[in-house]
């Protein structure tokens, strides 16, 4: 029980689409352990994005309970959720979601500024991370001056900035070509391997899912498969 970081207990998520009620998640039960690299897979509309939003505290369940570090997120206020997100979760989005008006460095600094980390410490950490993802020479570039791969690397650096326990990646290579995609996945794998972070990745790409230890497959809002990945891909770096 100690190792459980996130637990879904009979989670339902219902959306109102005009007149129709859509159940995106139906009575989902799952646990994510500390240090696990999990891939949530499934076709579009299967509910995997909904699941990720719930894990990421971006949304609350319609029914059921979600425990993040033994805290029931369904009962938290938005500002508490925000604080929890900021400290515990790092997001990597498919569309990178960098703030266009800010430089790479400012983007990485932002979560640290939100946490009110001391300026000097924050800047040192942000620069270290950008160097780590190989962008030491692009720190002052705005997102529009960076390639897709570079932007995603900034986004990885940002996700790692506040040293969160969980990294949530939503189709992290979805907008990248296969070579850059592989680079990014290698980087993600490396951070998982070296830092013992919990990584939860949402993807519909089975090839990408190979990097994960565990596969959770969703279909029509239900978990249809939850198993350990026997042949986890361990890229060289």
């Amino acid at each position: 029980m100690d190792k459980t970081l996130i637990a879904f207990r009979n989670v339902w998520k219902t959306y109102q689409m005009g007149e129709v009620q859509v159940n995106a998640l139906k009575d989902v039960n799952a646990e994510f352990e500390k240090g696990e690299f999990t891939a949530i897979i499934g076709p579009s509309g299967s509910g995997k994005s909904t699941m990720m939003n719930l894990v990421g505290c971006l949304d609350v369940p319609s029914k059921g309970e979600i425990f993040l570090k033994s805290e029931n997120i369904a009962r938290l206020e938005e500002s508490d959720l925000a604080a929890l997100r900021g400290k515990t979760i790092g997001f990597i989005f498919q569309q990178y979601n960098l703030i266009p008006g800010m430089t790479a460095l400012e983007n990485v600094l932002l979560p640290l500024e939100i946490q009110e980390i001391d300026d000097n410490i924050a800047e040192k950490r942000a620069k270290e991370l950008l160097t780590l993802v190989g962008l030491s020479d692009k720190m002052q570039n705005k997102p529009t001056q960076l390639s897709g791969g570079q932007q995603q690397r900034v986004s990885i650096a940002r996700a790692l900035a506040s040293n969160p326990e969980i990294i949530l990646a939503d189709e992290p290579t979805g907008a990248l070509d296969s070579v850059t995609g592989k680079e990014v996945m290698t980087m993600l794998y490396r951070f998982w391997k070296e830092n013992g972070k919990t990584v939860i990745m949402v993807t519909h790409d089975m090839h990408l899912a190979k990097y994960a230890q565990r596969h959770i497959e969703l279909k029509d809002g239900k978990i249809v498969r939850d198993e350990t990945n026997q042949d986890q891909l361990c890229p060289e770096y």
Binding site: S79, G90, P100, R158, S162
Partner: peptide, 12 residues
């Protein structure tokens, strides 16, 4: 951008 900022921990 508001969504992004909120995702990375910005409060209301």
């Amino acid at each position: 951008e508001i969504g992004i900022m909120k995702a990375i921990g910005a409060k209301n």
